[in-house]
Design a protein around this nucleic acid. Structure first.
Lengths: 214, 214
DNA sequence: TGATGTGAATAACTTCACAGCG
DNA sequence: CGCTGTGAAGTTATTCACATCA
């Protein structure tokens, strides 16, 4: 046990988000055979300031050596420990179209999340599998979630269909819904919804760019 | 001209992000035949507070009627005007795999962004088209961007290939790169990079959830 | 009267600057 | 000496509370 009892202490959301960058970044250093690094090395790679890196690390009690830096191996272990402590991240994806399929395939490579099943309403897709992950009928969704104690659902379906699927799983173990369109969803207390739409993100970034220009 | 000269005034980034939610939300109200709404109606739909809605609107000089609310039609027009003022949002996508293809198809429905071409290194895909959008060889990317004055690139390719593609377009009209994996990219000044990885976002949200639990 | 519009207070996050220590 | 670790200052965003006006 290297980590201090971090779950009790306060960690800013933005730090948690960056942790995933750090993990990716450190993996790269490790693969390249780098053994020792400084906060500035990580900062440059991630496009942030070195003081951010150091402050972020401080929330986890990560200790570098003053005047020297950090051991890559040790940092990797620490973050691995963090992820282990969180436990397995199992999810299901709704919609076995292009987007849903892409997600299932990506989840096989280098992520800590596992997509355990896909669901669709299209009869032609039901019964198929995506690289070993089964595609079930949307009618079995509620039952599957309950019996497998699934906490996360990814919605890779058209915006018109989003609410009806959510209504199907209101009363299950689901804690987190990630919708891939911005269409607002109604959920009961206790379920968190996030919206994550690639094309809308582009629109936002471009809007921001235009506002800065003038 | 309803909008005041907003491009001069300060608008928070987060407000700009929410604008895209408002647009989606208002479209829905309009489609449902709702003519008049209050800030609380929008807030509920979007899962935010009514005061946020009102403050956001205030940056654009949007005027409701005290004691009554807002006219849906009028709000829709205002935001349309905003988008028109920003101008067309043309982008290219790199990678004509599942994810890239999904993006091209989605861009056809109800977005303000237009994906004008896809690029791939796979000979079998080159020359094909995705619902009318051509797939070109990655070797033509630099030239295409320059001759079409493209400002936005979406990277839907494996993390190992990301940097080499970016290196190809360093000296073009590109202003904005959206990478769909978290792998850090080096870019020269003047190009903004954003990272947007669906599975990593899930990891982050789950991490956040776990930290809040305890 | 009832919901808007907005300054002021609060909270969250980032940056700074430098003491501390190997 | 050089880089870490971290309070303190600065910045940005959210929330509050209420005057305002159709």
């Amino acid at each position: 046990m290297i980590l201090k009892d971090f779950l009790k202490s306060y960690v800013p959301d933005e730090t948690l988000r960056r942790v995933l960058y750090y993990i990716k970044c450190l993996k790269k250093f490790k693969d390249d055979g780098v053994q020792s690094i400084q906060s500035l090395d990580i900062a440059k790679k991630c496009g942030i300031k070195s003081s951010v890196v150091r402050k972020d690390f401080s929330y986890f009690g990560i200790l570098g050596v003053r005047g020297k830096g950090y051991k890559v191996e040790q940092l990797c272990e620490l973050f691995k420990e963090l992820l282990d402590k969180i436990g397995p991240i199992n999810a299901v994806v709704i919609g076995a179209g292009k987007l849903g399929t892409a997600l299932v395939l990506h989840s096989k490579e280098n992520y800590n999340i596992e997509i355990v099943a896909a669901f669709d309403k299209n009869k032609e897709k039901i019964g198929e599998d995506i690289s070993g992950i089964p595609v079930y009928s949307i009618n079995n969704l509620n039952k599957f979630i309950k019996s497998n104690n699934i906490k996360i659902v990814i919605l890779a379906i058209p915006s018109e269909e989003v609410q009806s699927v959510v209504d199907m799983i209101k009363d299950t173990s689901i804690k987190l819904i990630l919708s891939l369109t911005l269409t607002p969803i109604n959920v009961p207390e206790g379920i968190e919804v996030s919206y994550f739409d690639i094309l809308s993100e582009i629109e936002f970034l471009f809007l921001k760019l235009k506002f800065k220009e003038k």
